[in-house]
Design a protein around this nucleic acid. Structure first.
Lengths: 348, 348
DNA sequence: GTGAAAGCGCTAACAA
DNA sequence: TTGTTAGCGCTTTCAC
């Protein structure tokens, strides 16, 4: 079955005009008489003519759309980021194409391949947890594809980046736990190779140091698949619960790890925060209505997306090659709720 | 700034070959000698040649990608649907392009415009709550664009559709509430013009009838923006709470309405289920860890997406125009948790 | 005011 | 085995 839409050629033939006349009439060129314009426009309208964007892009050399690669769209953090991207892109006349890597390196490469090479004018990407080589992106950048990283960035590629202050976010969160009196604070995080992981880990460790608490490596658990694999998290939680000195608090570093850990603690009848307090990085809108309401480090997701897009479009629209790059660091916000604070009362 | 990637013409020039020889060598044609193939391939590799998909699509008349329009990707129902779509599409060598209508008719039209006319080979769409005219889709279909509806469908367009048994889902849910002893059952639903709304409303009413309970129109609240506008839901909830005979149970018909209602009841210090029981259509993975754990009507989202894509690809790949269309109806599943059942204990 | 023609990058029928 | 050529749908320069 074929898509037999009407083309500019069809209109020209039917109206006994040349192709170029039709093209100009359609774009309301001053060269064309009103009468002709009217005829063309009416015919086009009637037959529901729509320009073929592929042909237009091929001709013009740009597609007015930008590609997005995130790990999972059902992660509220990413969907909020995407909303920010859409907002900025639309306001500048661009469309966005969203793809998911599902934390898989292979899928990431496949998506990038699909998106690239003039099918998009630029790329916004947060690396998958599996990704430790960015050769596929380096090549593209060398070819002139504007790329902006957000969230999970690579230090191997020089370009604009938008991240949050992960160190400080984790530091503040850990400090809060210490201030609440917790002394055995575990940390469940993602793949060790991801930028975000190491920054948050450093913040966690620094806070422990500053709080005079010795770092216990048994309390630090990695989930290489960033929470996509529930077994990983389950194993991490169970190992923590099996320790002879069980942790009295857990700081989870990733959205999905946070909610999964909550569910797993539930299943194991662990009282939160009485037995173990829980504090996690997450942007879920449901933090208030979870059981218990969840203390969370939240990221300015919409602004991350908006800013990253603004920077990408500035590269795309730049007359000359851009060589000076900037890394924007936005602050996180700590919300205290009952999963860490026994005295917390909702509804101020 | 421009994307100056290497083209087949560049390779031909450098290697003193014709364009077509290069093209054939690249596609490993039997016509080309191994030596030439090797030279071309090596040069291409070295200079990181990548075919321009726009040119390919323009030439071949298809893009091997399908467009998706949903209201919001951060709705777990839709993200699960999309996962099903990706799964089926990838397995057949297609890519997907995801867009959000944010429940806005205008955005829906804009997205469809962006996607259509050979930029995609087919369209998978769930209508926005605002949409009550489908002329934009009718036109496209007339031009030969294969379209498959899922979730929120239009009766005005004949094509394949994938939905769930909304009537039965709502009927069973309402019956469950009746069986639990609730007699004043309210229903907060979405826009009255959406297919899903009326089907679920009918199921609700039928169950009340069968349960010998008189239908009270004051107990039925519409949120035309499908939960995108929190004020709508807030007003609905407050109106219900202000009634002289307050409802003792609420059936919410949409994902976001369900979670928002839960949050609003929290804020108003309403005890669930003691004061008011809550049961909602939702696919959130967090139902178990909400406070209280949430009774829910869940949809087979992944399968909806998979099936819809399978049907779309069958139209796309059909040799002759397809005129016989099918509507697939999948079952919903009712999960009982503590928001309706006072005796519910997690962890079987 | 209108049209002819070149070309964006690629494929494929046909020629050599 | 390789090359020539036409053409996908559109824009744009240059003639007429």
């Amino acid at each position: 079955m074929n898509f037999d839409a009407i083309t500019i050629t069809d209109i020209a033939r039917e109206l006994h005009l040349s192709i170029s006349t039709v093209s100009k009439a359609l774009r309301d060129s001053y060269e064309i008489s009103e009468t002709t314009k009217k005829r063309v426009l009416e015919y086009a309208q009637e037959h529901n003519y729509r320009p073929n964007p592929m042909a237009q892009s091929l001709k013009k050399g740009h597609s007015k759309s930008i590609g997005i690669v995130v790990s999972n769209i059902d992660n509220q953090f990413f969907s909020q980021v995407i909303n920010g991207m859409e907002s900025e892109a639309y306001s500048q006349g661009y469309n966005v194409i969203i793809t998911q890597s599902h934390e898989s390196y292979d899928l990431e490469v496949q998506n990038v391949n699909h998106l690239t090479h003039r099918a998009i004018d630029g790329l916004l990407i947060s690396l998958s947890t599996e990704t430790n080589s960015v050769e596929h992106l380096k090549k593209l950048q060398k070819q002139g594809l504007p790329i902006v990283f957000f969230d999970r960035v690579s230090s191997e590629i020089e370009t604009h980046k938008v991240i949050v202050d992960n160190f400080k976010g984790a530091y503040q969160a850990t400090m809060h736990l210490i201030n609440c009196g917790y002394r055995h604070i575990a940390h469940i995080t993602s793949s060790a190779i991801t930028s975000v992981t190491s920054e948050r880990l450093s913040g966690y460790k620094q806070a422990l140091n500053d709080g005079g608490i010795k770092i216990n490596e048994q309390y630090i658990k990695y989930c290489p698949h960033g929470g996509m694999d529930l077994n990983e998290i389950e194993q991490a939680v169970d190992e923590l619960l099996a320790l002879k000195t069980k942790p009295d608090a857990i700081l989870t570093a990733w959205d999905r790890i946070t909610t999964s850990t909550l569910a797993l603690l539930h299943k194991r009848k662990v009282q939160i925060p009485q037995d173990i307090a829980l504090l996690g990085f997450t942007n879920t809108l449901l933090a208030d209505v979870l059981n218990p309401s969840l203390s969370a480090v939240q990221q300015p997701a919409f602004e991350i997306g908006r800013k990253a897009t603004e920077m990408l479009l500035s590269i795309i629209n730049s007359k000359r090659p851009v060589t000076e790059f900037e890394t924007v660091v936005l602050p996180t916000e700590l919300f205290i709720r009952s999963s860490t604070d026994k005295t917390y009362k909702p509804d101020q």
